[in-house]
Design a protein around this nucleic acid. Structure first.
Lengths: 139, 139
DNA sequence: CGGAATCCCAAAAGATACTG
DNA sequence: CAGTATCTTTTGGGATTCCG
């Protein structure tokens, strides 16, 4: 019994009673619920440089198929992260642009991006890297 | 250098030439590659309070099945986020605990958690909330 | 308790082709 | 260019049962 003991807790700076823990888990699950999947976060990040056209987004993400991109864009529209603009040029021009609300994700994106970059460096530098997951980018 | 300035990018504080954009997309995709799915981030967050046993993790996440939890824990072990401890008590006791490396995710987790909490508040407060995605927590 | 085994379904994602 | 349409494969995830 109580083998786990009440020690070990000194490591974490974060307050972590059961209340705040489940609240935290809920927060993270809520976030992931709208930002799920392989593409939404990269897509939002890509758009954070300014409005882009369909084909340009596709290129910037590397290898997403149009079908998936269409679906992701629609979901992001529904959740008010993205707006679709239609310009009556000939031929018609369409751009996708982030909403102000999506800027609330800036810090998340920044932290995730930095972490990913460092993680890649760690894996590449490590001799133990065999068998450890790392995506086969960059195309 | 005036990197940001050369075109119409004045709106974004983030430097966003094509180079750094694809680098950023790659970073985010690398991060998501190891942290994919519905459970890994909530799981890591949950463990950040200290070592936990299988059943306790399961409870803290609400509704994950043992099969999925086993799979997620193994993947996190492979990627050196989690360590599995076996204590030779009777019956045997097993705990899972975060590695030091997983602490590099603290800021990501923090930002994501905060965003998720604010997002939920926004959805709940909004009259336009119908049709907008929000997970049906908390149990 | 800490899982493993099996079965099953739905969703995610990819390939390819095609259209206005 | 900006998507649709189809088809297929893969994965994620849930339910249930069982075991030491």
């Amino acid at each position: 019994m109580d083998i786990v003991a009440m020690d070990t807790e000194t490591q974490s700076e974060i307050v972590h009673d059961k209340q705040s823990c489940t609240a935290g888990v809920t927060g993270i699950r809520d976030a992931l619920y709208v930002l799920n999947g392989k593409w939404k976060l990269p897509l939002i990040f890509s758009l954070s440089g300014g409005p882009m056209r369909f084909k340009d987004i596709q290129r910037s993400l590397g290898d997403i198929t149009p079908k998936i991109l269409t679906k992701e864009l629609k979901e992001l529209e529904l959740n008010e992260f993205v707006v679709r603009n239609v310009f009556s040029t000939t031929p018609v021009t369409i751009t996708y642009q982030l909403t102000p609300y999506s800027q609330s994700l800036d810090r998340v994106l920044l932290e995730l991006k930095d972490w990913g970059i460092k993680h890649r460096q760690r894996i590449v530098a490590s001799r133990k890297s065999r068998g450890i997951k790392l995506s086969k980018l960059t195309h």
